Simulated scan of single mutants.
Amino acid sequence: MRWEDLDQQPCSLARTLAVVGDRWTLLILRDCFLGVRRFDAFEQRLGVTRHVLTDRLKKLVSYGVLYKSPYQERPLREEYRLSEKGLELHPVILGLVGWGDKHMSDERGAPIIHIHKSCGQEMHATTHCSVCGKAITAKDIKVEVATSWQGHLDEFLPSKSR
Rank of each mutant, 00 (worst) to 15 (best):
K59T: 13
K85F: 02
L76V: 09
K102I: 00
S148G: 03
R23L: 11
K58R: 14
S105T: 06
M1G: 14
A110G: 08
A110V: 13
F33A: 07
C132S: 02
Q150R: 09
D5E: 08
P10Q: 00
V92T: 15
A135Q: 15
T54W: 06
I28Q: 05
E84P: 13
I113S: 11
C11N: 11
Q72V: 00
L157I: 08
A146Y: 10
Q9P: 01
K68P: 08
D40G: 09
K85Y: 01
G95R: 05
E155S: 14
I112Q: 09
G98T: 05
R38C: 04
E4D: 15
G86N: 06
V143T: 08
D55N: 09
C119M: 05
L66T: 04
K117P: 10
S130P: 02
Y63P: 00
Q8N: 15
Y67W: 10
S148E: 07
D106C: 12
P75R: 08
G95M: 10
G35H: 01
T126R: 15
R2H: 06
E78H: 02
R77W: 09
S105L: 03
V131F: 00
Y71C: 00
T16W: 02
S12Q: 08
F156Y: 15
V19H: 09
R15C: 01
E4Q: 11
L34T: 11
K139A: 03
Q44S: 11
D154I: 05
P91Y: 01
H51P: 00
D154W: 04
V145T: 07
V48G: 08
T137H: 12
C129G: 00
A14T: 03
H90V: 12
V143P: 10
E79M: 05
R77V: 04
D55Q: 12
G120N: 14
S12L: 13
L82M: 10
Y80G: 04
D22M: 02
H114V: 13
D55A: 10
T137A: 14
T16H: 07
S130Q: 05
I93D: 14
V145I: 15
A18F: 07
G100Q: 10
V20D: 11
K59Y: 01
P158V: 08
G86F: 08
T49K: 02
E84D: 14
E88N: 11
L87P: 04
L46Q: 02
F42S: 05
W24C: 08
S83T: 15
K59E: 13
K134T: 07
K102P: 02
H116E: 13
L57V: 09
R74Q: 04
M104V: 07
G151R: 00
V19Y: 13
L153V: 05
K59Q: 11
S130W: 03
V52D: 03
L87I: 05
Y63T: 13
R37V: 06
F42C: 04
P10T: 11
